[in-house]
Design a protein around this nucleic acid. Structure first.
Lengths: 357, 357
DNA sequence: TTGTAAGCGTTATCAC
DNA sequence: GTGATAACGCTTACAA
């Protein structure tokens, strides 16, 4: 690690008999203290009209005084609803994911739900384990974000006993009997590429994302479509592999400048790639956008702070999180009732022109 | 919003009688099917040695076939442990927080625990509500990150019935009977300011963070200490207010260049501030680090991608998350047993020299 | 309006 | 080894 660690005052004082086992007060305790039955307490605490207004108030007062806190698990055991939804992501450290989760959490909160967060690190086993664990916790719904292995869920989905919605899933065959929220990748790429073309660029490169992600396939498709719509030739040598991360972008730039006929513009799979590319360009003394115009995809929070500020396709991250959460909650509330077999929400990205193009 | 939304295939098909109420199988169901008592099933499923090896295997096989999933809530009800810890943060969209949470989640996972995420948006009521809710869910522990209102917890902390650890708390009076993980702010500032001084700078400005945060007070103290250790005068006009966000940094730069005797270097409360300042500097045609050296604090993931790459004090974010989680889990496992009255872990930041100084 | 009793799915304590 | 039986803290018929 290299970080020095300083533990101070640890184990400073052991208080031998500090038994904090502050026995939790239950409705029975309140019942005893109030001289009523525990069912009356239960009613009073949940504002049931079936209880005398006076005693209700008295009981609520006592509950407060005694420091009562309802046991959500016990309640859930009998009601069958946990008011909890599981959110599975690759890694929360990804700024895109973080924004999406932010949107999810706040909507969940607004509806009185709680979020269990699980990071899979893109490892299938961990992702499955997470789903299994969420199932054991009896969540009312699950949202899986940016997963590459969505198809696996479809098998698990039957067993989990709760609705599952996929957000920006990267797998092709997640079409059946599932619920999804996705950005329109093709449309976004069209926007990006068109923009470059309108600026007069003819030779436009595309830096790919990680292999086998449907989002990459779709963005690539949009790029080619824009080219063909403008009767521009598609040159395979202008498609260079990246990995969705800064390093990929840096390497891609090397490949680009080494080529016989370098492009005058480049569309990157995502902002992280573009940012890596920007950095490499600066080091190589290439002027952006003078020598090379660059556009990304995602609009991560810092896209406007790199230099030059990055033009990009903005995904409504917060909004997407909100939509996914609302979808899963709606499904949860009508679970084991009549509901649509599947539904997809497709949101469109927006062209954000800054100074890199 | 401005984003167009396209709902496709929604409500595509209602299958009227698809009752997915796939009645959950319980140990009793398995017991019935296997012709044994439910206690035997319970034992078999938890690898108890108190059960015939043959029947154990048979039962496990049946459980698998029947798609059994243990009910964590029911179990928790009787064992008193939920294997869940609550993490409350200001906002997960903050890259610093996201990294910390990443560290927390992965350690929790390694120990078989699950994370409930709650974002308070720095609103005291929400923060209190979150704690209340976590209490109802019977979490085994709570970690509060970057809160400004830690003192409030100290009242709640007794009632919550679970250990609470504070990470990078911004409140002064969180000293008693609590557990904390914090970065050594004074030390980090010393590092940063020393670095600037060693580069030959005499007039060094400090851009503050949000008011009344102890972290700001401490960083400021480190700055002054470095100055005095090098017998440099402390000039109050060189301390300009920021807000911990890019805008604050941008505004601060205006103030700086408008001053009679501008500094040749500036130490910013955090990276976000520095990044805003960098941007304003670029727009104002100020050369970094030629005209002005800039250093931040935090080392957020994109600090190395802005231009010029930002020198900063690196906080071991992941590590801090890990430490906090390990602390709370240790406390949880010994709850209502003998344990230290309080302990603080203080980690030291590291000077990360890049190109802005 | 209130109380009694059953039950949610576990684990745990006894006997046998 | 195994099976009753009693919790755990709550909600909810069903009675009174």
């Amino acid at each position: 690690m290299g970080y020095t660690l300083h533990t101070c005052a640890i184990n400073r004082l052991y208080s031998a008999f500090r038994v904090l086992a502050m026995d939790r007060v239950s409705i029975k305790d309140i019942a005893k203290a109030a001289g009523v039955s525990h069912s009356t307490v239960s009613r009073a605490l949940r504002e049931s009209p079936l209880v005398n207004a006076h005693t209700k108030e008295r009981i609520q007062e006592m509950a407060r005084e005694m420091g009562y806190s309802p046991d959500a698990q016990a309640r859930s055991l009998v009601t069958g609803r946990s008011y909890t939804v599981g959110v599975v992501v690759t890694t929360i450290a990804d700024p895109f994911v973080a924004e999406v989760v932010q949107g999810m959490e706040s909507t969940a909160h607004d509806h009185g739900y709680t979020v269990i967060l699980s990071c899979s690190d893109s490892e299938p086993e961990r992702e499955i384990a997470a789903v299994e664990m969420l199932r054991a916790k009896r969540v009312d719904g699950v949202i899986v974000t940016s997963s590459r292995i969505g198809a696996l869920y479809l098998d698990h989905v039957e067993g989990i006993g709760a609705p599952v919605v996929l957000l920006n899933n990267h797998n092709e065959q997640s079409g059946h009997y599932t619920y999804t929220v996705t950005v329109d990748n093709r449309h976004g790429s069209l926007l990006a590429t068109d923009h470059l073309i309108n600026q007069g660029h003819i030779r436009i490169a595309y830096i790919t994302g990680p292999a086998n992600h449907s989002s990459d396939t779709e963005r690539m498709a949009g790029y080619r479509q824009a080219l063909s719509e403008h009767s521009l030739p598609y040159d395979p040598t202008l498609v260079v592999p990246g990995d969705g991360k800064p390093v990929g972008g840096m390497r891609a730039l090397q490949a680009l400048i080494a080529s016989a006929q370098p492009p005058s513009a480049v569309f990157c799979y995502n902002d992280m790639t573009a940012i890596g590319l920007l950095r490499a360009a600066r080091e190589a003394g290439i002027d952006i956008p003078g020598d090379l115009a660059v556009i990304g995809f995602d609009d991560i929070p810092l896209a406007s702070f790199v230099c030059p500020p990055l033009s990009t396709i903005s995904q409504p991250k917060n909004e997407m999180g909100r939509l996914a959460m609302e979808m899963v909650l709606t499904l949860a509330e009508s679970y084991d009732a009549v509901r649509p077999e599947y539904s997809d929400i497709v949101v469109k990205g927006k062209l954000e022109i800054r100074e890199s193009t």
